[in-house]
Design a protein around this nucleic acid. Structure first.
Lengths: 230, 230
DNA sequence: CGGTAGGGCTAGGGTTCT
DNA sequence: TAGAACCCTAGCCCTACC
């Protein structure tokens, strides 16, 4: 009787996504204060936003895993690196070794010591040969973890495979799948918005090649080129 | 995130408590400068100390009146006393309208009498035999979540090891460490049995480090008194 | 500036409800 | 049972006030 449980409406969810797109994740209060969204989200708290965003991502991850049954296309660029040391975003026994830097200057995104270092780096789109590296993987955290979060490249492949349609998938479908990225890349300030924009661009440009290996290659290239940005 | 959140270790917490005992509250900078604690707390700022102290007190106060967590387990043994804590003006991150109101009932106060003051006078704790702990037995919870309990055994070990003294640690020292337990165990009564088991194991394994059953009894007793209902 | 007190916020684990 | 919505709180950050 106390809490009726307010279900999120499509409008609210859209506003949330737009808000994240505009201000970034973790800026719940900011989003809520933005007059552009405050009207729609007036009955939500910053915590609600955070929780909802989490649910959205969790769902996305699971969705992709569920459909993972589909055999991946044997593409020429099938990543073959396995047994890679998973990156673990969690910090367990962090010993007090690092004094916190006080001069809180710019938020220079710093890599964690245990993140993968992508040496490729440049956001140059001219990358021709998609040579997937072990992007991050990172386990879903010990407890109850069945499997490590799918590798980024696998997720992409999975998405492409599953979305495969006679005449190609539409933008929304792709985006739906790609939404999984923020989760995979979180902790690195890899913003969802940028990814989506970029991917959609790629898609538009290669609409004809849709689910051929070539497109996959392009997508992967794109993803990889974006990763070093954080 | 630049700063991954440094969780306070039992050692740090103990140092903080000792520092407050020695210099008083509000003397964060002083505590930090005290060579006795500076080593342990070197990665903390005076503000951190202040915040941690606040958290400790808040949880301590609330811990006593904490809601009686469901005893769960279909095992009838314990009557399922369910209740909500009367919500008090606590300002968490939520600021929105809060259309939600939940007037739940108060819990049935069994007996909330913990909050033992270990820092000062020793209470007449009659050494009780570590037998009455056979409370909820079954909850083995075997595989799976072992994480939530946060390694109670390690804490104990840590305490005993660190407090190790030529002739054994005195009551105050032990108590200082044990104080941390309620924080770890709170709201997780269902793990209590496991906890006890862990303690017993520790007792067997580290027999040389403490004063035998006598001390363990004290520990158990203390834990017992700190855990609300049962 | 340096320090403390106190309000506020987010992240993440938990819990409740459906 | 899973998923969505909601709760709890540790650790930090921000601002006001000396």
């Amino acid at each position: 009787m106390g809490a009726p449980k307010q279900k999120w409406t499509a409008e609210e969810e859209a506003a949330l996504k737009a808000g994240v797109r505009k201000h970034g994740t973790g800026k719940w209060r900011t989003i809520l204060s933005d007059p552009e969204f405050s009207a729609i989200l007036h009955s939500r708290s910053n915590v609600d936003l955070k929780d909802k965003w989490r649910n959205i991502n969790v769902t996305a991850i699971w969705g992709s895993r569920q459909k993972a049954k589909l055999a991946l296309k044997k593409t020429s660029l099938t990543p073959k690196l396995d047994g890679r040391t998973p990156v673990i975003p969690k910090h367990d026994g962090r010993t007090p070794v690092t004094p916190k830097q006080d001069g809180r200057t710019q938020m220079t995104p710093k890599h964690d010591d245990n993140t993968i270092a992508l040496s490729t780096a440049p956001q140059n789109d001219e990358v021709v040969d998609a040579k997937p590296l072990a992007i991050s993987s990172g386990t879903m955290q010990a407890s109850g973890s069945k499997e490590p979060v799918a590798r980024l490249d696998k997720l992409i492949l999975e998405a492409i495979s599953n979305l495969k349609e006679p005449n190609g998938s539409d933008r929304a479908s792709i985006a739906s799948y790609i939404e999984v990225l923020p989760l995979v890349c979180k902790d690195r300030y890899f913003y969802f918005a940028d990814t989506i924009n970029e991917l959609i661009k790629v898609q538009s440009a290669c609409n004809a090649l849709y689910h051929g290996d070539f497109l996959i290659s392009l997508l992967l290239q794109k993803i990889y080129s974006l990763l070093p940005l954080f």
